[in-house]
Amino acid sequence: MKLLIVVACLGALLSAGGTVRVVLRRLNIRSRPVLTCAEFGGAEPGTAVMLVGRTAAGPVLTAPRSRRPCVGYHSVRIHSRVISSNAEETTRVVGPAGGDTTLYGDGARVFLAEQVRTRKLFMGNLPMMFMARQFEDPRNTASNQRTEQEFIVPADRAVVAAGVVAVTTGDPCERFLDRGHWTDGSTQGGIDALLRRFAREVVLAVIGTLAFAGAAIQLTYLAAR
């Protein structure tokens, strides 16, 4: 019984932490202006925004590693190695890329930083650019591992991205969407679906917290009888 009480209490704490995180993400995202790609060009650098647009409609390519259809792709090479009994070194290099990885709308286009276009806004939704396949080096050992991941952009998909307006070095007129906050990322779908998803996440998180808390109270009561 004590073990069940501990599990229920831990579940309630973890669920409460998740609920706070969901609410903070929702408040952070809802407070941002929603911009089209055309409006983005006039945004003030450093401003946290929501950007809406679509991926390129074509030309459709075949990603070289995964052989999946897409309009843009890039590979990420990760090398992890043990350098001592209590230390590990990991390097991450963005490798070969091709096609179109920008966002379009109203006759304009916007470049998204790699951490924005490949990072999920929601665990259950694909980001603008998602991992199509992962390849492990057959020579990997327990202490020395190499992995290659290929990310692709699907054709003509509605996308919502959260980030911060940044300027290209050497060209203050050229703006792009960079990552500046832990909530930043992208998701496939329209802005209305995004807001509905936020509402569902908050409701489910609250229900989960109340369920675990109720179970902990009930078990504590039963144990005390």
Rank of each mutant, 00 (worst) to 15 (best):
Q115P: 02
D178E: 14
E136W: 00
V165K: 06
Q145G: 01
F130S: 13
D171Y: 09
Q188E: 12
G99A: 08
A113E: 12
A113R: 06
A113L: 02
V94K: 10
A161H: 07
K120I: 08
L126Y: 07
D106V: 03
M123D: 09
A193I: 00
P96L: 15
I83V: 11
G185F: 08
P172F: 13
A142I: 15
T101K: 05
C173N: 08
C173V: 08
Q188L: 14
V153E: 00
R81P: 02
N140F: 06
E148Y: 03
A155C: 00
V93K: 10
F122W: 09
P96E: 14
G180P: 02
F122H: 07
S85T: 13
D192A: 15
N125I: 04
D156G: 12
T102V: 06
F151S: 12
V110D: 08
T101S: 04
P127T: 12
V110Y: 05
S85W: 05
T169N: 08
A87P: 00
F130L: 10
N86P: 02
D184G: 09
G185S: 08
M123P: 02
Q188D: 03
N140K: 06
F111W: 09
L121F: 04
I152T: 11
A158M: 02
L103F: 11
T118K: 01
R109T: 14
D100I: 15
G189R: 04
A132E: 02
P154K: 11
S85C: 06
V94P: 01
V165D: 05
R157Y: 01
A87K: 02
R175N: 09
E136C: 01
T91G: 07
F111S: 09
A166G: 05
Q149F: 09
F151P: 12
A108V: 06
M131V: 15
A87N: 01
V116D: 09
G124I: 03
